[in-house]
Write a protein that binds this DNA or RNA. Structure first.
Lengths: 413, 413
DNA sequence: CTTATTTTTTTCGGAACCCGAAATAAATAG
DNA sequence: CTATTTATTTCGGGTTCCGAAAAAAATAAG
């Protein structure tokens, strides 16, 4: 709103446009890009030949064998895999994994380890990340483009600038400056973001038709996380990563939450809450530290099999989620939902209760139109999301600007 | 994200930049504009002399008598009042008011009438608006610039495109197409927006320091409304005007709300809810249709005077608002708050309860830092907001593009 | 096999835009 | 009255985009 547009910004933006069109579409031709961006053919032509000569894009080899059409065949453009690479790191409770991805989005090497995150120092956590990234980037396989960006997806709350892990259930330590430390170590920009936000980012790339401009990803796991895309933008807080759906209040002064407060949605719908309600029947019992996925699946099987405390526990969970969604929908209208994580395998049990709770709220007007989708496996989504985050910033911040000063290149030519 | 920037868009945007800088600052000089926009002096010079010759801006007459500074004195630029005018219409329960405002933002003529909105047909409501606008625009006083835009602020839910009143407590009718009908009548673009959103817009102009990029306006009146500005943008739903704070759920299956559902915040904190709790002690009693401001002030006086059902009613109201805010702050971090309307006069009674409720939520981390402000009189705010909305669209959509095709003008010159 | 047709991509000339530097304008200080 | 300071305008230059025309690369038709 306040800063004017310089003449040279224009070129940068339109380069970004072209790169993003190539990343989004599968091998578009120059003509297609001209159509989707609204820019003229001549502009697309110059920009794309610049990008090709800079080694960012490439013309696809004979891919589609026969076009069956008259006229000069379109030349498909692709991202040049060797243009760069990025590292995606996923840090979760007791687990660290990372991968090197080339510029076209293909995984080059990856690695996963188990750690006991809750009993490690902040330093040790950082060191583990550093060590893993170093192993991966120095491996023979990762000999493509230079690593230009590292993106981490972490459980917990990060700051809005994506520099620090402010708070996380996976460690007792606060304010861990992952970005600063990794940047020091590798000399490459690093971002640290909330894992659910990365899940949302990934969904958008997996199914751009369903998950386009407005949708919600909810992670049903030990806690309840959320990634929210509104009007095409990932919705984050002004100071923190935001969208802590699990800590909206379901019942004032209600069940004891892992965060120490009372009545949070998570205190009814988190894995520990469901287990507690089913097995102890005491919603004020101290939350269990860890719970295996099998425990939850066992509860779900019991709930499906017969009426009893398990079924009741899932009812309460569904109700909490439904009322929470209803309250959210009072603020910004319903959107398609994806339930991700172990909890999603039990979503069939909760769904009727979710829907009936939503129906009691302002969002209820459209409750039948709201569509749910489930995806039990959250780990690949987190990695894909972090990957896309990293690649997009390379696109926008590095390659859109032009790697080398363009004037110098013109002299060479 | 998808559309490229054309070469001619650039000028349009930068013209918009300059106009907006003049509207925001009080009489900035060209040099100041260059500084705030980041554009070069020469660009600002050409753009502003274009705008002056088009009659959109003007150089201020000897305003500041002595500058006390060495060097050529700055020439202050102002908006040319006669460049255009707009009409702001405020439709509330039993009241309609409208005003003609010149391009510089000065009110030229205004009028207010009482109507019995709840017993009028949709047609009659539209007709009243048409008649009032016609009277105002045809009055002798309104002989300045042509009316280029009409903006309405209405209680209730409007559609995201600002065309229709989807639902409103002031009338039993749904889907009233104000924008279409007024456009037909006056041949000028019309927008219809939620009144609380306009209050937020107005606050931002009244106090741009406090209400800058993130803040919340809450209207405490018969119902509870909200206008939300997040990251510099008015936050609206994807289909409707959104941000229906009053209908977030405070207590599942709780008190009976005017909307027919149960447990909404409004059912505890709306005027009717406070009155009901204080006087009937039955939170399921049918909500009263109307309640005068004096009734509320009387309840507030009683609550201040002695412990009793009135004080308890305000406690419940404050608690509902506090938990609601806490849930919102789980989603997007706390921001400065303004409480507007009659209810704001009683906010002193509610404040401790609001704060103690927030302290029990995820937003509680910063609860002491959250600052409240009150403004009892909402009517002028609604009008100011609608005015600014209208003027800004004239700035951005009409004058930024250039009134006449620039090529033709160049020929003349 | 050659020519016409169709479609894609590149090239070229022209216009619009912004920038930086220099020039001009308008005030105060000495 | 001149030097200094600050604001604004003018001018030349370089980018950038666009539209039209040309070139390229295929198929269809004779």
């Amino acid at each position: 709103m306040s800063v004017g547009i310089r003449h040279d910004d224009l070129r940068r933006r339109n380069r970004a446009m072209v790169i993003s069109a190539v990343r989004r579409a599968s091998q578009p031709s120059r003509t297609e890009i001209a159509a989707t961006t609204g820019l003229s053919h001549s502009t697309i032509s110059t920009i794309s030949s610049d990008l090709i000569s800079e080694g960012i894009l490439a013309e696809a080899k004979s891919n589609e064998p026969v076009s069956m059409k008259r006229g000069r065949p379109q030349v498909a453009l692709t991202l040049e895999p060797k243009a760069a690479s990025v590292v995606a790191v996923v840090l979760s409770l007791n687990s660290l994994s990372a991968a090197v991805i080339d510029y076209a989005g293909n995984t080059v090497v990856e690695e996963t380890t188990r750690l006991v995150t809750q009993h490690m120092s902040a330093e040790a956590l950082i060191d583990e990340c550093v060590a893993m990234i170093r192993r991966l980037t120095q491996s023979d396989a990762a000999s493509g483009g230079a690593v230009l960006r590292i993106a981490m997806a972490v459980q917990g709350i990060t700051d809005a600038a994506s520099r620090k892990l402010l708070w996380s259930p996976i460690t007792p330590h606060d304010d861990i400056p992952f970005a600063d430390r990794l940047e020091q170590e590798f000399g490459v920009p690093v971002s640290v973001e909330n894992d659910c936000n990365m899940i949302a980012e990934a969904l958008r790339w997996r199914d751009p038709v369903r998950y386009r401009d407005d949708f919600i990803a909810i992670l049903l796991s030990h806690g309840i996380g959320m990634g929210l895309v509104i009007k095409g933008e990932l919705f984050t807080g002004t100071q923190s990563s935001g969208a802590e759906f699990g800590h909206m209040i379901h019942r004032p002064d209600g069940a004891l939450c892992r965060c120490g407060r009372r009545g949070c949605i998570e205190a009814y719908a988190g894995n520990y809450a469901i287990w507690r309600n089913a097995r102890l029947g005491d919603e004020n019992a101290e939350p269990l530290a860890d719970l295996s996925d099998d425990d939850i699946r066992a509860l779900a099987d019991a709930a499906r099999d017969h009426d009893g405390p398990e079924r009741e526990a899932f009812r309460k969970a569904g109700e909490a989620i439904g009322f929470g969604l209803g309250s959210m929908f009072a603020l910004f209208d319903p959107a398609p939902l994806a339930f991700v994580g172990v909890g999603a395998t039990a979503f069939d049990i909760m769904e009727p209760h979710v829907r009936s709770a939503i129906a009691k709220t302002a969002g209820g007007l459209h409750s039948k139109a709201i569509s749910f989708d489930t995806e039990p496996n959250e780990v690949p989504l987190k990695r894909e999301g972090a990957t896309m985050r990293a690649l997009l910033t390379v696109d926008q911040e590095i390659f859109a600007a032009g790697t080398a000063p363009r004037r110098a290149e013109a002299d060479v030519a």
